[in-house]
């Protein structure tokens, strides 16, 4: 079996350099690679371009890398939950590219699937379409979007095995599987790492071929952004 298991997050980020482009899974704070983000912060690398649906909150998720100004540019679909983000953006210290969520997902998927570009109807007639090729199919206008390129992808799964196979839980799956496909080096952190053979191959979400490094994360906080409840009974 190909060796993929690394002992911790610190080892998993080996090779990370200034000005690299990273993908980070998660939707809001759900399914984010908490341990990897902490390790990236520890390396002190700067000038990062981060592709992630959101940018965390002030003191958690990617907000931790905004605090230390390690991020030069964010590529996201929605960034509303973060005051520090707003401040850095308005002062020009942070570059931001906003793209439609489905386009973001497909640009990740395409990157991992060997599709250099694709046409989508999303954003036609809006500022998202500025400077992009337009082509009509079946009587509808579409714009050309390109696959991303990422030096590293950091994803978080529920369970993983030594072969790099991953299983996600609930809506913590979100962008993680496509980003896993797209990274030149994909680092998966999992809540539970098991020996090969323990996960039923019928229920693997991300096959191990897409994962280069895997480790069991520690002390997951799994912070909830909007805790909404109803009365029991």
């Amino acid at each position: 079996m190909i060796r993929k298991v690394v002992k911790d997050a610190e080892t998993a980020v080996t090779g990370l350099k200034d000005n690299m482009t990273l993908m980070l899974g998660g939707f809001g704070l759900c399914g984010i690679p908490e341990n990897s983000i902490a390790a990236i912060r520890e390396t002190g690398v700067k000038g990062l371009t981060c592709i992630s649906n959101n940018a965390g909150v002030d003191d958690f998720g990617l907000g931790l890398l905004l605090q230390t100004q390690q991020i030069k540019k964010m590529i996201s679909s929605y960034v509303g939950e973060n005051d520090l983000f707003e401040k850095l953006m308005l002062s020009g210290e942070l570059e931001v590219e906003l793209i439609p969520q489905g386009t973001l997902a497909e640009r990740c998927r395409a990157a991992g699937a060997g599709i250099p570009a694709f046409y989508t109807p999303a954003g036609y007639g809006t500022e998202v379409a500025l400077g992009k090729e337009v082509r009509w199919f079946k009587g509808k206008p579409h714009i050309l979007e390109h696959a991303f390129e990422a030096d590293f992808a950091f994803v978080k799964a529920w369970k993983g095995d030594e072969a790099g196979n991953l299983i996600f839980k609930g809506t913590a799956r979100n962008f993680n599987p496509m980003m896993a496909m797209a990274g030149k080096i994909t680092v998966a952190e999992v809540e539970e790492l098991v020996p090969a053979g323990e996960l039923d191959p019928n229920f693997i979400h991300t096959p191990g071929i897409f994962v280069q490094r895997i480790f069991e994360g520690k002390a997951y906080e799994k912070r909830i952004e909007q805790r909404t409840v109803r009365q029991a009974g």
Partner: peptide
């Protein structure tokens, strides 16, 4: 929405609500 006992951080909607 979940009851307090059912809250799961891995289960949210697009508005980030549990």
């Amino acid at each position: 929405f979940p009851t307090e006992a059912e809250v799961d951080a891995d289960l949210i909607n697009a508005g980030k609500q549990t």
